[in-house]
Design a protein around this nucleic acid. Structure first.
Lengths: 189, 189
DNA sequence: GTCCGGCCTGTTACAGTGTAACGCTCGGCG
DNA sequence: CGCCGAGCGTTACACTGTAACAGGCCGGAC
């Protein structure tokens, strides 16, 4: 039912949240090819989620969709409480616990990733399944997160795990440092 | 001061924590040499810390030493509040914030590691510097954490980072799954 | 139709994690 | 002596995450 009741605030209802995406105005500089973050991809991700839900018989509810939209539009890791705030409108608060449940769903189906070192969430930029592993490049300066994969890393990891007799279930690889764009900015200072 | 007041509960004061280091008796299968967890190594680590403090002119205070001892004796990831509890004696509470400061010191100098996916801390079982990276194998069943390194993983990671133009500062590699010992136990069930 | 079950969400409450800020003590130093 | 810096105690607070219960919606069984 509430499909249509959502749309009028799904993308803009949260009035002027004082723009903490301070990089928004300045980061057009870098070009390492994987930086198609942000709103442009949000629609794609939602579409993928809808296909996936249909295929697996899952309920892609309004809350889950709005949560995914918020995460996808940001392009930068968002905490659960940040998401809750963005989803809330005056008179209609969304509690963080609801967001956690939505995020559980989304991570379980590979639509968003959790950044363990930040306790925050980013949209999944690949079509990979939940089982496949990703490498997250987290920039200290601009806060952007880039997601890549590497068969080579995966292979060497597998080899190490096999040698240790360890059966992996999930893998976390998070690199913190400076992205290409911010290195350029650092030199300019 | 309280140097001597600590020892009587340092190793056994917290009554019977039901020995979850059950791999000690059964896991003779793997032999990569890095599985000497627990109390046996605690002294070594403290000795290493003392040498390091002397060499660098650092203050290895009583609180920092006791914190390191607690972490080293457990062999299993401990939360900051768990550590605070173990450090506290009736009438003399140690606040978590103090433990955090001690942990900051210890991690900064490579004596303990933080497990991001668990918000917990483990002793460093290698002599590697803070800059070098480690791979943590976290067992879902027994909770033990094994720390290894792999030049091969490091190399492939470096290659991927260079390719992305990303300058790494710190690396987090945490694999969750089942350790060799617990796989054996799973089959026995 | 009604009832019943599951799933999702709202709500409250609470435990755990982490940091900021202030003040104290202690030891070194001029 | 007073100054200063480091470490620590203390309070307060913000953020993270989960448990438990209640209500709504929907589909199937009767």
């Amino acid at each position: 039912m509430d499909e249509q009741g959502m749309d009028e605030h799904g993308t803009c209802g949260h009035h002027a949240h004082e723009d903490r995406t301070q990089n928004a105005g300045t980061h057009g500089a870098h070009d390492h090819g994987a930086c198609a973050h942000g709103p442009a991809r949000a629609g794609d991700l939602v579409a993928r989620a809808e296909r996936l839900a249909q295929a697996r018989g899952l309920q892609f509810t309004a809350l889950r969709r709005r949560t995914l939209e918020v995460v996808a539009e940001e392009g930068r890791p968002l905490g659960a409480y940040d998401i809750a705030e963005r989803l809330s409108v005056p008179g209609k608060r969304v509690a963080a616990v609801s967001v956690y449940r939505a995020l559980d769903f989304l991570t379980e189906h590979g639509l968003v990733h959790r950044i363990a070192s930040r306790n925050a969430f980013v949209p999944c930029e690949h079509g990979h399944g939940a089982g496949e592993s990703a490498v997250f490049l987290i920039c200290r300066r601009c806060g952007n997160v880039d997601e890549t994969t590497s068969a080579e890393i995966e292979r060497s990891l597998d080899r190490t795990l096999a040698q240790a007799g360890f059966k992996p279930a999930s893998r976390i690889v998070e690199i913190e440092g400076e992205c290409g764009a911010c290195q350029g900015k650092a030199e300019a200072e």
